[in-house]
Each structure stands twice: as C-alpha cells, then as structure tokens.
Nucleic acid binder design. Structure first.
Lengths: 225, 225
DNA sequence: AAATATTTTCATAAAATATTTATGGTTATG
DNA sequence: CATAACCATAAATATTTTATGAAAATATTT
C-alpha cells in the first residue's frame, strides 16, 4: 500500500500541480491552512506531512509546532530559501528534511522516500535510491522513474544504468563497464556493451540520436550526466 | 472488537479506578492534561472521549474546543456539578452528554453505550493485521480478505503472501523467498515457488494474467504492490 | 579517402517465467 | 475402514522476454 501524504500549501495552483505528480506514486490529501491541516492530520493519519512555510493566518512554523504537539509524524519543509536559522528552528521542532525551491520531482520523491524509509524502520538514508537530476533509480522496487514516469527496463539495462548512476558525472571506461557487467572473461572485442547503451538510450532519451543522459566519451567510454 | 475510550482526568486515583472498571468492557487509554489528550486523540483515535472539566493548564473546556477543532469525536463531560450555563456552553461545542458526580458505574456505562450507539461504527485495531491497500491479512485468524471478501488460501499460500506483505512495496528476490519458505535445502532449479505464486495469483487476482497485486520483477523476484 | 570508432538493425539462441499435468501423502468424512 | 477432497511437490510443456553476436550503417578522426 502506498504511503499517504498530507500536502500543506496555500498556493493552490502550485499545490494542485504537486499533488497531481505525487498522486502517481502516493496517496495525497491536501490542506491550505492551519486548521485544515490539523483536521486532515487527525482524520487521515498521513505517513508524512509536507509543509510550505509561507502560510496565511497560522504560518507554517505554527502548523509544525501544533503538529509536533500531538504527534511525531514526519515533516518535510518546502520553502523558497532555507536559511541556517530556519534549519535550526526546524531542527528544534524535529523537522525531518528540507527542500528548497526550485526542486526536481526526482529529488522530491527521493527525499520523501528517504524520510518514509527512515521512519518506517530505524535507519535508512537515500542509500537505496539513486538520484541524478530528474532520474530516480529505486533499488528497492527495482524501478526507474524519469520525472515521475516509469521507465521499463530489462534486468541487464537496469544493472548498466545502476553502474552509470553510481558514478554519474564521471566518465566510465568501456572496459570497466564491460568488466563490471560481465566479468573479466569477455574482453575480446565484445560489442555487447554498446548494444545495451543503445537500448538504454532508446528507452531513456527523448532523442536517442542526441543523448542528454548517456553521453559518449569518444575513445574512452560513457558517462551519465 | 470493543470500542476505545479516552479518559481525561487529572485526579489520578479516580482516573485509575475508573479506568479499571471501564477496562472490563472497553479498551481504555488515558490522559491527564490537555496536551496529552491531543496526543492520545491523534494516535489512538478513540471512539469516545470522557473529559473531567477541571484540568490544570489547559482547562477542560479548552481541551474540548481543541478536540472539536480537529474532529467530531463524541465527548462526554464529567463534572462535580453541571450548571445550566455549562450545559449551554457544552451544547454549543457539540458535547454529547454530561455526567455529574457522584455517579454510579451503571449510569456511566449506560451513558457511554448510549453515546456510542448513537455514533457507532465499530473499527478494530491493526495489531497482527497486515494491510496493503484493499488487502487485509489477519495473522490471528489466519484469514485474508480482499475488499471485505474472504479469500480461501492453503497454509503454504498464506505463508507466501505473508512474507510478501511484510515487505510490500519492495521487491523480494526469488532466492530469498524460496529460502524463507523452504529453508536452505532445496535443490537449485526448484520451480516450486512459481507454482505457489501462480496459485496465489489465481486466487487473488482479478485477472491472473495481468497481476495487480503480485507483480514479477523480471530477473529478480516478486513484489506485492 | 582511409582508418577507426560508434550506432543501429536484425535474427536467433538462451533464459526466465507461466501454466498444466501427474503423483503420493494427509486429512476429513461418511 | 474406505473414499473423497485437499494439498505439497515434482515434473513436463508452453509462452514470453531477454541476451547476444554479427553485420550493416553512420559518424568521426587522421
């Protein structure tokens, strides 16, 4: 069963947009002010509350304080900017994470997952989730999302992407990739890696001929941007 | 399952005595001040709150007001004396009943039942019950319900579903499933797990060929959604 | 233009998974 | 006590998906 998230934001258009996206992955309930938040928290018992800190009437911090009065429900703060003072303030209130606008959906999803995993059982950081920009590789579910859209990969493709993602921003040599994928005994002119780079691209890239994600480092190997 | 009652009273000896008696009929949780009351209301979701109106810090009326802010949970007021003014005050707050000390247990139970019957819709606890969306696995009764309909499973099927449910949302490898089900000692190419995945699906899934619950993670294992 | 590197297409083999059938054992039932 | 119903397991078969090598096409460098 997917987790339930309470989204608190008084900017209705933005809230709607966010909710739409999150709904693909979680169950989402919303509130636009302090009182509504408390009601929803009570009746829906969400697993996580995401609070935009500039709320009218009761400001975001007030909401958080009152939530904290009645429970230890995980809270993520959403704000335009997060000063050190804010972080301190949040820390004393037991806020679980901060996200500063602008943010990518992948980042949001990842942080949500991280917080949920952490609170569901003891530890767990984002270790089981790799994030590269708008690309999320969820090693728990063994699924890949590009801007919330699920990308269907074969096991081999998944493995290859995982390797690249673990070193994203760094070029990985063809030889090393091949070795990691198929072990030492594959060396002689094996063309198989390229075959998979190609199929990954065709699933991941908007325009596979001009790859944005998996770029070729000519004479060396490949790199995930 | 019996109803759950939140008993709010700062007179500890009296509260204890009351709780002892009520416990024979209901499940009882307690609080001794305003904040604790809000916490309990949130985390326990009682069917009924009984409030002693002379509380320290936040007085009884304040507690009631704050409870009413977040829910329409039934409330019974307990007080030494109930003036007409109090009744009016309570009425505007939507209090369900008043009990004036001294009172007999019989009277208390009667009024509790009356209020509960008025508002009743019994809900159970979640202990020893795994819930995944519309799927309920009752480990006590060893029964599985899908959207209230009972699903008849064999012991082996039940065990398999339980394992999957405990990690729902995460892929579980075929190897691990097999190990958990039958231990280490099972020859390599054992296909027995698939047999049971298949029979589970045929009992659980609306369209077993397009499983919604038990999805295969190709090259890895299975996952309960 | 030749040499080299990379991308793309294609056909096929291999594998992973799903489904059906068979068998022996256990339990419930009359 | 016999019989039927049920179940766990194994094994056989069918179906779907994936891995792979090689060849052809394209691009880039020298």
């Amino acid at each position: 069963m997917s987790s339930k998230i309470l989204l608190v934001d008084n900017d209705i258009p933005l809230q709607t947009m966010l909710a739409d996206h999150l709904q693909k992955v979680y169950r989402v309930v919303t509130a636009t002010n302090g009182q509504e938040t408390m009601r929803q928290a009570f009746s829906e018992h969400p697993h996580l509350v995401i609070v935009e800190v500039e709320l009218p009437g009761m400001d975001g911090w007030g909401v958080i304080a009152r939530l904290r009065e009645i429970s230890s429900i995980p809270i993520i703060i959403l704000s335009k900017r997060t000063s050190e003072a804010d972080k301190l303030r949040g820390f004393t209130l037991g806020v679980d994470d901060y996200i500063t606008k602008p943010f990518s959906y992948a980042e949001l999803l990842a942080r949500i997952n991280a917080v949920l995993n952490r609170t569901r059982r003891g530890t767990g950081t984002l270790e089981n989730i790799l994030i590269v920009d708008d690309l999320m590789i969820d090693l728990n579910r063994r699924e890949v999302r590009l801007d919330t859209k699920l990308v269907d990969l074969t096991p081999t493709e998944f493995r290859l992407l995982e390797i690249l993602a673990r070193r994203h921003g760094k070029a990985v040599s063809e030889e090393e990739l091949t070795k990691q994928m198929w072990g030492e005994y594959r060396h002689e002119g094996s063309t198989i890696l390229r075959r998979y780079i190609w199929s990954l691209r065709s699933k991941l890239e908007e325009d596979p001929a001009n790859p944005k994600w998996i770029v070729t480092i000519r004479g060396f190997g490949y790199m995930l941007e």
